[in-house]
Design a binder for these strands. Structure first.
Length: 340
DNA sequence: CGGTTTTGACCAGCGC
DNA sequence: GCGCTGGTCAAAACCG
C-alpha cells in the first residue's frame, strides 16, 4: 500500500500555462522496486511551464492569472470550498493521507521511513565499525566521515522545462554527475553553497518525457533566503525558514537567481484541518510585493490551494510569526497581486 | 584569483 | 560473493 496525495493547479492565462501537480507517495518499503516515484520520492510536484524561471512567466500578467480552485478526492465527494475566481486545485488524498508529512524538519514520517526506524543513536553505535572500515579506506581515499549519516527528507519537483536548472535564488554547486540507468540523460548532483547548509539537489530529465526535469531536494536550508535579484524579497534572517524545498539555480556560473523557493514546512494538506491559517504579511518587506491578500476572498472561501500558498510560507520555528516567501506557486498565483 | 563545473574514481547498498 | 547502480569525493579545468 502506499499513500498518495495529489494537488493539481491549473492556470488559465495566455502567459501562464501552469499545470502543477503535487503528489506524494510514501512507498510501503522505501527503496523498493517499482516506479521512480515509488522508490525515490517523498513528495513530488509537477510544474509545467516553458520558461527558465517561474517568475519569468509573469512578466506581462495581464489579465491576472485565472485560476480555478477545486478539490477532488478519489473516494470522497469534492470537499471544502471552491474559489471560482481562480486556481484549480485537485487534492486527491487517499486513505491514510493524514499520515503524510511534507515538513522537512517535522516530517517524522518521512525520516522514519527513510531510516527504517533507525535513530541517530543507532548511527553512533556504528562508529566503531565505521572507524575500522575507514582505516582501510584511508589508504585509498579518506571519505565518508559519517557513512551511515541520517538521510534527510526528500521530495521531488517535476518541471516541464527546456532547461535543467530552475532558478530559485539559492545557490547551488554541482558536485557530481552520473549517467542514469535506462535514461539517456545524466543526473547531476548539487549542493547548497551556503556554509553549513547541507541541502542537496538532484536534477535529471525524465527518460519518458525529456521535456520534464525532475528535481529532487534533500535536506533543509539552515540559512535565510540568500538573495533577491528580482527586486523583491529576502526572508527575515531572524526567522530562518527551513525550506524543505528549493530549486533551480546553480549552474552556468554567475549565480543569479530568482525569488522562488518552496517552503513546505507545513504540510499542505492542512486544508483538512478545520481552522484556517491567517494570511501572511511579510513584515520585513513592507512592500506590497510580498503581501498575499487575495482580494475579495474571505477566509471561508479560501481554497486549499490558497491555503497551501499560505502554509508553505510558514516557518516552523515561528509558528505565530509567518514569514512570506516567494515560491513557485506564489509566482504562479500571486504575481498580479504583488504587482498591485 | 576565487568560485564553479567536469569527470574519473571510490564507496555503499542492494539484488541475484 | 559478485556485479550493478546510486551517491560522493576531489583534482583538474574552466570561467568571470
Amino acid at each position: 500500500m502506499e499513500n498518495k496525495q495529489e494537488l493539481k493547479i491549473h492556470s488559465e492565462n495566455s502567459n501562464l500555462m501552469a499545470n502543477t501537480t503535487f503528489s506524494e507517495q510514501i512507498p510501503a518499503v522505501y527503496g523498493g522496486g517499482g516506479s521512480f516515484f515509488d522508490a525515490y520520492l517523498d513528495m513530488l510536484a509537477f510544474q509545467d511551464y516553458g520558461g527558465a524561471c517561474l517568475s519569468d512567466l509573469f512578466q506581462p500578467p495581464t489579465p491576472p492569472p485565472s485560476l480555478v480552485v477545486e478539490q477532488q478526492q478519489n473516494h470522497h465527494p469534492p470537499p471544502v470550498s471552491t474559489v471560482p475566481e481562480t486556481a484549480e486545485v485537485v487534492n486527491t488524498p487517499t486513505q491514510n493521507s493524514s499520515s503524510i508529512s511534507y515538513s522537512s524538519n517535522e516530517g517524522a514520517n518521512i525520516v522514519d521511513q527513510e531510516n527504517n526506524g533507525r535513530s541517530a543513536d543507532d548511527d553512533v553505535d556504528d562508529d566503531d565499525e565505521d572507524q575500522e572500515k575507514s582505516t582501510t579506506n584511508k589508504q585509498l581515499k579518506p571519505k565518508k566521515k559519517n557513512p551511515k549519516k541520517q538521510r534527510e527528507p526528500r521530495f521531488a519537483f517535476m518541471t516541464k522545462s527546456d532547461i535543467d536548472h530552475l532558478d530559485d535564488g539559492y545557490r547551488w554547486r554541482k558536485y557530481g554527475q552520473k549517467a542514469v540507468k535506462n535514461s539517456p540523460y545524466p543526473r547531476s548532483y548539487h549542493r547548497c553553497t551556503s556554509v553549513a547548509c547541507g541541502v542537496k539537489k538532484r536534477v535529471e530529465r525524465s527518460s519518458d518525457d525529456p521535456s520534464i526535469v525532475i528535481t529532487t531536494y534533500e535536506g533543509t536550508h539552515t540559512h535565510p533566503y540568500p538573495m533577491t535579484p528580482r527586486g523583491t524579497i529576502g526572508i527575515s534572517p531572524e526567522t530562518p525558514c527551513y525550506g524543505g524545498f528549493s530549486g533551480g539555480g546553480g549552474g552556468g556560473g554567475g549565480g543569479g537567481g530568482s525569488v522562488s523557493s518552496f517552503l513546505f514546512t507545513q504540510p499542505y494538506y492542512q486544508h483538512l484541518q478545520p481552522q484556517l491559517q491567517p494570511y501572511v504579511h511579510n513584515q520585513t518587506t513592507p512592500s506590497s510585493s510580498l503581501s498575499f491578500s487575495p482580494p475579495n476572498a474571505s477566509t471561508h472561501h479560501l481554497s486549499s490551494y490558497s491555503r497551501l500558498l499560505q502554509e508553505r510560507r510558514f516557518c516552523p520555528s515561528a509558528s505565530s510569526t509567518f514569514v512570506a516567501d516567494h515560491g513557485l506557486l506564489e509566482d504562479v498565483v500571486l504575481f498580479q497581486i504583488r504587482k498591485d
